[in-house]
Write a protein that binds this DNA or RNA. Structure first.
Lengths: 275, 275
DNA sequence: CCCGAAATCTCTAATAATGAGACTTCTTGC
DNA sequence: GCAAGAAGTCTCATTATTAGAGATTTCGGG
């Protein structure tokens, strides 16, 4: 079907373990993949040894411990998680809201960490939750700061989504709207991802001033007076900027940027991870 | 060196991303693996497309979004996490402690979820943290309930560790000590994993009454009066039993077991996951 | 102790992986 | 704006690896 090389085949097997089918028997996999029995078992053996898969006591297979460990590794040494945490806590301490940190992977937006202070949040954003690529404040807060070329490509790819939000009809129009976001330094979205919820997001930059993530806060819509919104927004932007600074961003010609002038020591390798 | 098949080579690359080296450049990988440049880049391409790796803006590679998503998948549909959470919260609400749920993967013990209620816990147990296989209450609470054969094999493999804890000098002696644990239904360890911390752990069973996990609580040693310890222990055991029941365990001839007689509906496939 | 299902082994044809070196990009410096 | 260097990709013949049919072993119950 799709896979040619044996690597692709391994990946294809991994691909089968999805939300609605996280448990497979070898025979089901044989049917699904079309590989011969010995072939499939060979793959399974390798994958189980690597810990990517594990066999359930009751004769089945699932994703294995290696996955959990790798995520742990990433979390543990991700400077973004590390530096972001206090801000997530700070924000949720001030307002009854959900604060989240979302990383941009080029083709995916994934929640990396979150903190909640409302008693019953309207939706949850645990680590690993994928966010829509072209809807919501998070998306825009990042798009607006991409290199023009990348940005335009992304706009083209998600044109219909961006239309329906009302950002503009044509790519240039949309780019214009994003320019606003860029100027403000944050994006606001009303119920684009979750109805009834306002999202405010500001980008986080790495040492090379590339946007790599977004700090976002979501609040139940009826709680916000418009004057408060300004206050919240600038706080979020400030937090995002501080995180960027901690990641070692070099303040280019961004004198307009808010926030203190923390002089940064040379980036320690440990700190540079993921950036 | 080690890898023969291309699958093994892929895994070998993955293996290189460790705690102390989570960021690699292609050239470093070429040196580390010994593959030719086109070969390595072929691997990288596949792995990046699969999301297992991702390239950092500043020219390097790390583990990719796929890892985070897979862990999310596992967490989201893991009935153990789902059913265990309320108990973790309940336990930490009653005592100033850390409660954790640890899954047994045959060769690894990994923390799956945890909750903390002490202000400054002596050590942390986030999801994904590996636990020692043959030390501490968790380890013993599971070992004691394994089929004899498996148990003896495990004892042999970790003899020196088990010795040093004082469980016994020879395998049969150790087995005898574990019999005690089995009778009690829980294990206690004094500072075996973290000095100054007492751990109390009880096993969690799947539908087929195979031990698959352990519910554990750790408390700073000086906080415990020995009469309280009994109380805590039986509560933990009770919680673990209730979790087992929710996972669909069939109460075999375990009339001695504590806890209510919740009659269980037939295991819904969704619930059977991971068990 | 024996049965059936699950997993592994054997072995050759055929297929896919390898790597030297040429060839594109893309950066970065001047 | 151009040139030099680095990073990544392509081509293609050689070679080693993978696939799969079928036999064989192992395991788990009854």
């Amino acid at each position: 079907m799709s896979g040619q090389s044996s690597l692709d085949k391994l990946i294809a097997i991994l691909d089968l373990f999805t939300e609605d089918h996280l448990e497979w028997t070898p025979d089901a996999l044989i049917k699904a993949t079309g590989y011969a029995r010995p072939t499939l078992y060979r793959y399974l053996k390798t994958m189980k040894e690597a810990g990517l898969l594990t066999s359930l006591p009751g004769a089945g297979l699932t994703l294995g411990p290696r996955v959990v460990e790798m995520d742990y590794l990433m979390r543990k040494s991700d400077p973004l998680v590390h530096h972001g945490r206090p801000y997530l806590e700070g924000l949720t301490a001030t307002w009854p809201a959900t604060a989240l940190l979302v990383r941009w992977y080029g083709r995916r937006l994934l929640c990396i960490d979150s903190e909640v202070s409302t008693t019953n949040p309207l939706s949850s954003y645990p680590r690993g939750r994928p966010m829509p690529l072209a809807r919501g404040a998070i998306s825009r807060s990042i798009m607006a700061f991409l290199p023009r070329k990348t940005m335009m490509a992304m706009i083209e790819e998600n044109l219909s989504d961006l239309n329906s939000i009302g950002l503009g009809a044509t790519p240039p129009e949309i780019a214009e709207s994003l320019k606003q976001v860029r100027k403000q330094g944050y994006a606001i979205a009303y119920g684009e991802v979750t109805p009834g919820v306002v999202g405010i997001a500001a980008p986080v930059f790495d040492a090379a001033s590339t946007p790599i993530a977004s700090l976002c806060m979501t609040i139940a819509g009826n709680l916000i007076a418009s004057d408060k919104l300004d206050q919240i927004s600038s706080r979020i932007r400030q937090c995002a900027d501080e995180i960027s600074d901690k990641l070692g961003r070099i303040r280019a010609n961004d004198t307009e940027m808010a926030g203190g002038d923390v002089p940064l020591e040379t980036a320690d390798p440990k700190e540079r991870k993921f950036t």
